[in-house]
Design a protein around this nucleic acid. Structure first.
Lengths: 226, 226
DNA sequence: TCAAAAGTAATAGTATTACTATCATATTTG
DNA sequence: CAAATATGATAGTAATACTATTACTTTTGA
């Protein structure tokens, strides 16, 4: 219970930012408009100078919140996964049947995001698109091991571990619980990408969702060897 | 048979390059050393200027082969997948049992790459590392739809479709053959990445390979609903 | 309430990147 | 051996990803 409650808050590892963007109006505008701008022009073309123009503020002011656009991406991904984790813990909390619980968790992790008005300055639909298109760039770098040691990816890893634990609750003997969990989380993003851009190599479309695929895949993987 | 033979050659869509790097000594040096340098410093820090220094040649000469480093990455990924496709077709060619055939194909796609001396200027072990760490950057761009229309990703998509067809040979009623195939190809790269950097969220290590995981996953997914 | 502290803006400057353009030289080929 | 082709050297450009400094503005707490 304690462990659950301590993670319900959308909190991002504090080493990621220089100054907490949640602590000021400008900080919130930075987050709000960085999501809009990254979605619009892509992370590769996104710069703090362009963001400054967008929010009518100065480049140098943005640098006081984030060292680099890479750190900003780390912030956005951590926020996103913490938000997903919150929903996962919340929706599975009073579900006692292990299989039902896992299916609910997979649903949360793999579904197409809908509007959420809890956090007014964050557009979760666009943020989800950014996660699909850009989040892997946050760890596919030469600095990944150093940054991993500094805890920049704990939220993501914690989410995968929660999923792994639910898998093991169903079948403690399943040998690939961690790999299955990480495959579901990463694979869902990939299927959403394929659905939008490479339709010929996915079955996901208006009728079939990534959730359908991964739910069946997971249940078959875990229960067949039971 | 014709269809098989026509794809056995390691051929890369010719719109990717300005001048075929296989057509000259300098071209081969560009490929050879771009693999070494990208592996060493990462694609983000890689520039044609640095590559020029490395091969004792001029930046402007490299630009005569590739428009940009992005195109070079597209070349390397296409070459890699064509090489994998070649092995997949070759090793499954005389296997008539559909399940055995699929398992051999998954082995080829997911295994850790070993030395291959057929193509002297290409270090396949390092190229595989580049594919794991950098290949998604070739399609996670704002230009993906235009470039897809121009055929820059056909080799990758053709490989996934071959795998899909083998899945359907086992069970023609399986609803998620394309998604399973694309999940295996992308997921294997991801598991290799996790094995190297985020060990706590994968089961893959010195004893368990991504191949073990994906073989069992695929067979269970396909056969249980048969 | 007023001074100190903290936050924000404006400007300038730097090294590097991702190229393009031009011209010269070297090599190949018909 | 001349013409064509390939490569090299140099220069130049706009943009990127920052850092540094100074000035102004707002908040706060004694």
């Amino acid at each position: 219970m304690k462990s659950l409650l301590s993670n319900l808050k959308i909190s991002v590892p504090d080493k990621i930012y220089l100054k907490d963007p949640e602590s000021s109006k400008l900080g919130k505008r930075i987050i709000e408009h960085s999501i809009l701008l990254i979605d619009k022009i892509g992370f590769d073309c996104f710069t703090f100078k362009k963001l400054g123009v967008e929010i009518g503020s100065n480049e140098s002011s943005i640098y006081r919140y984030f060292e680099s656009k890479h750190k900003l991406l780390l912030y956005l991904t951590s926020w996103y996964w913490a938000w997903i984790e919150y929903q996962m813990v919340f929706t599975t909390y009073n579900v006692h049947n292990p299989t039902k619980k896992l299916l609910k968790a997979i649903e949360v992790v793999t579904k197409t995001i809908e509007k959420d008005d809890t956090f007014s300055h964050i557009n979760e639909i666009l943020l989800n698109k950014i996660i699909i298109n850009e989040s892997s760039k946050s760890y596919l770098t030469k600095e990944v091991d150093i940054e991993n040691k500094q805890g920049y990816f704990i939220v993501y890893k914690r989410l995968v571990k929660r999923l792994r634990d639910m898998i093991l609750e169903i079948n403690a003997d399943y040998k690939f619980a961690s790999s299955l969990a990480s495959t579901i989380v990463d694979g869902a993003l990939h299927q959403h990408f394929l659905k939008a851009h490479f339709t010929s190599i996915t079955d996901c479309d208006a009728n079939i969702s990534p959730s359908d695929f991964f739910k069946e895949l997971a249940v078959n993987a875990i229960t067949i060897t039971k």
